[in-house]
């Protein structure tokens, strides 16, 4: 019996040290604030919801642990007998209700913004394939496939893994900074989901249907993401890489990569 008690004490200690040790691991543990106005709004809302949960947790669990400490039989307390109180029950139904309404207002606003794809500057049609992406610049007439570039020997542990292991592609999606880019997302086979955390854009690619999303990137840079919907054997191996560049550089890139025929073709269709 004593041995078991001591074991329990050790286990408690181990638990505490593991939990506090994890704070030093140095790898990311939170959502990135991202590089668009929307991603920042989303991040802020995430943090508000998180701290709200922390506050509720602290209040509720303090009450619980206080009770566990104070209202225990070993302290010789005699139990009370109350078992209902309409007032209290009404209060703790109404307060959460009000808090939730407060939380839903900014969420609704952000969602409406995310759904507003009007007034875009350019359109990229994204098509998911098992297991790569295809990008088509509708107005600018560029189109190409984009697939994983990490070597098999890295995946099979025969070679050291590079910095962007599994998050690197042969052809990046290049977009201009400060412009509203509209994405038309679909799939050629099964459902995929196109996701870049720094842009806070995640949308399913559904065969036979076209979904819309948009972004306006504020800072030049390379932003990495992955397919987020299980799409078969190599689902874990179809990353998304977006390179946001200044407008002038984007125009140069278009000039170097455009296929003129396809641009006119699309222009004719969209007219």
């Amino acid at each position: 019996m004593f041995a078991i008690k001591r074991l329990n004490a050790w286990l408690g200690l181990a638990f505490i040290s593991v939990v506090s040790g994890s704070a030093f691991a140095g790898q990311p543990i939170n959502m990135p604030p991202g590089v668009t106005d929307i991603s920042l709004e989303v991040y802020n809302m995430h943090m508000i919801a998180f701290w709200l949960c922390v506050v509720i947790a602290v209040v509720v669990f303090s009450a619980m642990f206080y009770s566990i400490f104070a209202h225990r039989k070993s302290r010789g307390v005699t139990p009370a007998t109350f078992h209902e109180s309409t007032t209290i029950e009404a209060i703790w139904t109404i307060i959460p209700f009000v808090v939730l309404i407060a939380l839903s207002i900014p969420a609704t606003k952000t969602l409406i913004d995310m759904y507003d794809t009007s007034d875009y500057d350019l359109t990229v049609k994204i098509t998911g394939y098992q297991w790569l992406w295809h990008y088509e610049y509708v107005e600018d007439g560029v189109d190409f496939h984009s697939k994983l570039q990490t070597s098999l020997s890295q995946i099979n542990n025969d070679e050291e893994k590079g910095e962007n292991y599994l998050l690197e592609v042969d052809n990046e999606l290049v977009i201009p900074v400060g412009k509203k880019v509209r994405f038309l997302i679909t799939s050629n086979d099964v459902i995929h989901a196109w996701w870049v955390p720094d842009l806070a854009v995640k949308k399913d690619a559904v065969p036979g249907f076209i979904n819309e999303a948009w972004t306006r990137v504020n800072e030049p840079g390379i932003y990495r993401g992955q397919c987020a919907e299980l799409c078969g054997r190599h689902h874990g191996f179809m990353p998304v890489v977006v390179r946001a560049v200044p407008e002038a550089e984007y125009q140069q890139w278009v000039a170097a990569n455009a296929k003129p025929e396809s641009a006119t073709e699309y222009a004719a269709i969209s007219e």
Partner: peptide, 14 residues
């Protein structure tokens, strides 16, 4: 509760 917030769920989902 956090997942319920649709715009934020875009980041959490899957």
């Amino acid at each position: 509760l956090m997942l319920a917030l649709a715009p934020v769920d875009f980041q959490y989902h899957d």
